[in-house]
Design a protein around this nucleic acid. Structure first.
Lengths: 157, 157
DNA sequence: GCAGGAAATTTCGGTGACCGAAGGATATGG
DNA sequence: CCATATCCTTCGGTCACCGAAATTTCCTGC
């Protein structure tokens, strides 16, 4: 019965909405289980991305990325430092600046976060042939672009 | 150069993550522009879904759906009622109960929320043939299921 | 038909994340 | 060196949220 379904625009939009809602729930549940806030998870993700890119992150840059005030970012970093996820290091060249370094603990938390989801996703996609992956990849890319564009429309319509 | 890209598991996971991040940002920005909280948006979505299903929603059921305490839900409903989005109606049969009714204003807010995004998405998908839509639809469905399963693994592993 | 308990919601007091403004500390230009 | 800018933190206040107690209404056994 399932295979006969027509995937018109409405159905795709509904599926997209369900996907984002479920992803959100997953992240929220994970944060709750591990006793951290959603904001903290997002902050760790930003810091981790910066570490991957080799760019040491500053509190101000983090605040901008999270759309958060500087003062709120200070207490966020207090929390993360107290929990042992992050280290504040005064820059040697400009001693006003602070560089944020992740501790291994946080990296392990990130892996623990994604491992179960990752495993399920890989299993779900195991039999996808390359041409289907190409279709899906282009779909995701254009959909991401559309979302970004739609957000831009609000800021400067 | 884009068409030669290989969409292996890693690439798809990255795209999926970017998609959820961008969707989140879109919702957050919309909430901020309209002076409501994220929680309020989620609450309106739940209430709207219930209205579509024809099931009048109670504050307690809303609290459960939002994973929120009853007292927090009370003040949330105070906000929504004060803003004119929702109406509290005492149930005629059981006068302890409250039924939540959406006002047209909130429905219009929801439409205003989705309209720009919807327009962009439809444009992005305009030329998708049916067989591609089927591939995408199955992908989204299995991915949603995988996410739900992964969340279940945490609760009772 | 009424005492006692259950159910649905609200009120109350307290906690903590967040914001804006003011306050150091360090760097840079004249 | 003094003035100004930059970066971060501290401070006081606001508001969403929580847990527990209070309120209103329903239901059951006697």
């Amino acid at each position: 019965m399932a295979d006969g379904q027509r995937f018109d625009d409405e159905v795709l939009i509904t599926l997209l909405r369900r996907l984002t809602v479920e992803s959100d729930r997953f992240a929220e549940m994970f944060a709750e289980v591990h006793g951290v806030h959603r904001t903290d998870m997002n902050a760790l993700a930003v810091i981790m991305d910066a570490a991957k890119a080799g760019t040491p992150l500053s509190p101000t840059a983090l605040a901008a990325a999270l759309n958060l005030s500087n003062s709120a970012t200070t207490s966020l970093l207090d929390r993360l430092e107290r929990a042992g996820h992050v280290e504040r290091i005064r820059s040697a060249r400009d001693r006003r600046k602070i560089e944020l370094r992740m501790r291994d603990q946080a990296r392990e938390l990130g892996i623990a976060f994604f491992a179960p989801l990752r495993q399920e996703l890989l299993a779900a996609w195991r039999d996808l042939p390359d041409d289907h992956r190409a279709v899906i990849g282009r779909f995701l890319t254009t959909t991401i672009d559309a979302t970004v564009t739609a957000r831009g429309r609000f800021v400067e319509p």
